[in-house]
């Protein structure tokens, strides 16, 4: 196991420790066309070591929920705790790493330099930075590319680098907002596989936003189905699939059954609009 996840691997996983708790969480944006209920009465608990996917059509609040966890948005009602703290404190305590839909690497920094960015901002020592950069680059299998600039890498490799950047400072929680949404299906399959193996090795808790049903079912231990207007949770599915799974699990009846339930949930949430 890599030296950079000692804190998480030392905890006992047989006991369920909640990482994220949302109680009656609501978020209303005031716009020119009146209030928009991005989130309404959301109740959810994410335990340590979970891989939770949020799935739903655009406007269902899945990204807003992730941003609220990251303290990039403030809820207008209800309670939200991350590691037992309010989100803003959790952010200052570096509770999470955030991966955006676009890799968002700085074009003027090398891959190594990009991963160094959060570490420089957080004031890690020089020797510590070198160590961490080396470790996470190995973790995402980009060690040979550290001196390259982003434009010299493929889209999939850039997204791996951005995951490495989010992992570099040892947050136990990884928030991922459609990280593979802009990639083609072949690259996406491969990165899904790699993400699962990374999750198994690092024991992180992952909250993952997607609009792909196969991706959600393949990756998750818990699937949260959401629906729009107002943004709310319509179904929470605890996946019976084993934690250790390969891509071929997508052809098993269990997988197809869960995918079916997700699809039903999405359809029910849409109501008569579809």
């Amino acid at each position: 196991m890599d030296g950079n996840n000692v804190p998480s691997s030392s905890t006992d996983h047989s006991v369920q420790t909640p990482v994220i708790i949302a109680e009656n969480l609501s978020l209303t944006f005031q716009t020119g066309d009146g209030p928009v209920h991005a989130l309404k009465d959301v109740n959810l608990t994410v335990d340590k070591g979970d891989f939770v996917s949020f799935i739903g059509p655009s406007g269902c609040g899945k990204t807003t929920f992730l941003r609220t966890i990251a303290a990039l948005e403030a809820p207008t009602d209800g309670v939200l705790t991350v590691n037992g703290m309010v989100p803003d404190e959790a952010r200052k305590a570096r509770a999470y790493g955030y991966v955006f839909q676009a890799a968002g690497l700085y074009p003027w920094r090398t891959i190594e330099g990009n991963i160094r960015l959060p570490l420089e901002i957080m004031g890690f020592s020089r020797a510590d930075i070198e160590n961490r950069v080396r470790n996470v680059l190995e973790l995402v299998e980009l060690a040979g590319f550290k001196k390259k600039y982003p434009w010299q890498l493929s889209g999939g490799m850039q997204q791996r680098a951005s995951i490495a950047r989010a992992l570099a400072f040892d947050a136990d929680l990884l928030l991922m907002d459609e990280p593979f949404g802009a990639l083609d299906e072949i690259v996406r399959d491969r990165l899904n596989e790699e993400l699962l193996s990374l999750w198994a090795r690092t024991q992180k808790t992952i909250a993952f936003v997607t609009h792909s049903i196969p991706e959600a079912v393949y990756l998750s231990t818990k699937i949260v189905v959401m629906s729009p207007r107002p943004g709310r949770i319509t179904d929470v599915i605890e996946s019976p699939l084993p934690k250790d799974r390969g891509l071929d699990i997508r052809d098993t009846p269990e997988f197809i059954a869960i995918a079916h339930r997700v699809r039903e949930g999405l359809r029910a949430g849409h109501g008569d609009e579809v």
Binding site: R67, L72, R91, K92, R94, G97, L117, I121, M122
Partner: peptide, 12 residues
């Protein structure tokens, strides 16, 4: 906005 959000997540 995404670049600014990223720095916000680091509490820069």
């Amino acid at each position: 906005a995404m670049q600014m959000d990223l720095l916000q997540t680091y509490s820069a």
